[in-house]
Design a protein around this nucleic acid. Structure first.
Lengths: 328, 328
DNA sequence: TTCACTTTTGCATACGTATTCAAAATATGA
DNA sequence: TCATATTTTGAATACGTATGCAAAAGTGAA
């Protein structure tokens, strides 16, 4: 089998010109039904597939989306990854996966994205300096911050409505009769953690209630250690709002270890609704992030920007839902 | 900023030919130190980066590795994904992520990999028909099955030594005084589940011991349901060997729900050593798969095949380690 | 200096596709 | 039927790079 069958080969066999072959494979080009059939038959016979690199070279466009991710320890993100790949596949786009250890995407990875001239970029977990974000803009590469906002917010971002979620959670806990609450935060420089807290504190303030804030880091270990500290300091509240599920699981395990009854002594509510939250061992009440919708919004924007770049910025917020289980 | 600065632009500014610019960026080409400096200075000034697509078009090679994955619900695999991206990055390769829902990779995804003329392919979770695997061979694209073996084993595979692991686990449980054991399998057509069982049963047979096999599916829910069935049928053994950790966690939760004491009444041992196995709520004894080594072996093979294709097949088995915790 | 030899450079070309433009084919209308 | 409008086609070219080949530049010995 010859490894490189090109449009010219197909053209010869089909008895048409290379241009016609090209047109058959180019979305929206005009070809008569007759030549289309001839070309497809010849292509089938030869096992022809258009060379993506030649295409990209001449169109200066690609069908590759760069997806930047950091925290794969949190099961929420792998799920995001697969949903994105599935969603993009529908439109013929493939995903170039970029993993960063640091919070901020490394220059090397930025170069990769630029070298491959990706059609668009999704940043999930990680952050990106303003400089770098601007350089994508200069190249007219659309960019979406997924579940994060850049402080200078003239970039597009898609989030769950964290403010409303925080409010609803506070109201729910109040309704359940909790008065002495605590918030266990994620990494403190993330917009998600800050906004969840903001909504939460707003509502408590309306009821003239104080709450204690404990800084943590969005990891299981962090949640576990933080809860242990709180218990040992004798500062147990009547309810914990934990900034994400994986931390909340750590909190639950710490409570269990210390023999604190959930939800009788302490209520716990998480955020994300990862699969593990529904496990019989946990049955965690939580706030569901509507991943499908968020992904859909992201893809919609990227597709429209790829069709015609505007660089428009917006902060899209999708509403989530409270999932009541056994920890409240 | 002009979006497309090419080698000719750099050449003009540096006062050399386009070929010289090309040679500066081509690994192993000969350029004098003087022109190299001139070119790099000019490139820096213009913000030049070589166009990957033009490169790939002419060299007929790429720096893209296709990574095919199915089960992201099992935390083992996201970890594998990040380790691969990190390892490949060192050598300048990027990862094209392909997610498949079915066990077998879909034709559409195969086409994607071929269209992008990937330099190599890693199949982790999924399987691939012999036909498809052969077509990669026909294109001289090296292929590694990671943690899986194809039945017709003339393709390269890298696994943990599952046979030895199964043996060691049986011996360990025997030493702990268990006699009446049960194996909870993963998907039954996977080489991993079969080989783990084979080693396990070998050793038990040597001691003239029977064991009960329960078919399950490598998911938490599967482990949970299977264990519940066993308990309700009154068939509780003195020890469970569970084919992976995520299932073992389900088993532990089922046992806890039914008030079965672990390890007093039943011992449980898993496989993989995912992060959650070490959580205080579980403390699962398990078998550690040496991911780093497995990844390293895979990358080593792919790099050598990319340097010069041989299509050689081998079944590499890396030894794992028993991690003793509180469930045995 | 001259000559032989090695290294470096530039020219020209090729990779496989999309796209412009003019020519050819086809459809339309009277 | 012919003349005109419309659609389809093919030839030629461009995209940005790598590379074979020959010319140029550099090196070293005598």
């Amino acid at each position: 089998m010859k490894s490189t069958i090109n449009a010219k080969d197909v053209a010869k066999l089909a008895g048409v010109s290379q241009s016609s072959v090209s047109r058959v494979y180019f979305e929206g080009a005009k070809v008569s039904e007759k030549t289309r059939r001839k070309v497809l038959a010849a292509a089938e016979e030869l096992g022809y597939r258009p060379n993506e690199f030649a295409r990209s070279l001449i169109t200066n466009r690609t069908k590759i989306i760069g997806l930047v991710m950091k925290g794969v320890q949190n099961p929420f993100y792998p799920q995001v990854l697969t949903q994105f790949t599935a969603a993009f596949k529908k439109y013929g786009y493939s995903v170039l996966f970029v993993h960063t250890n640091n919070d901020e995407i490394e220059t090397e990875d930025v170069e990769t994205l630029l070298n491959y001239n990706v059609a668009g970029v999704v940043i999930t977990d990680a952050t990106m300096s303003l400089n770098v974000a601007e350089s994508f803009r200069a190249h007219h590469i659309p960019l979406v911050f997924f579940n994060r906002k850049l402080s200078s917010s003239d970039f597009y971002s898609v989030c769950c409505n964290n403010l409303n979620a925080g409010r609803a959670i506070a109201e729910y806990l109040l309704m359940q009769g909790s008065a002495n609450m605590a918030y266990i935060s994620g990494n403190e420089n993330t917009s998600t953690s800050l906004e969840r807290e903001k909504g939460f504190s707003e509502v408590l303030a309306l009821h003239n209630l104080e709450y204690k804030k404990h800084a943590s880091d969005y990891t299981y270990g962090g949640g576990y250690a933080t809860a242990l500290d709180i218990i040992e300091a004798g500062e147990l509240p009547s309810a914990f709002f934990v900034a994400n599920d994986i931390m909340a699981l750590g909190v639950l395990d710490a409570l269990q270890k210390k023999g604190v009854a959930v939800p009788e002594q302490v209520k716990v509510i998480g955020f994300d609704n990862i699969e593990m939250a529904s496990w019989p061992g946990y049955e965690l009440t939580t706030w569901e992030q509507p991943i499908e919708k968020m992904v859909k919004e992201t893809v919609k924007y990227l597709l429209s920007e790829m069709a015609g770049y505007t660089g428009s910025a917006q902060s899209v917020e999708v509403e989530g839902t409270l999932i009541k289980r056994k920890t409240t």
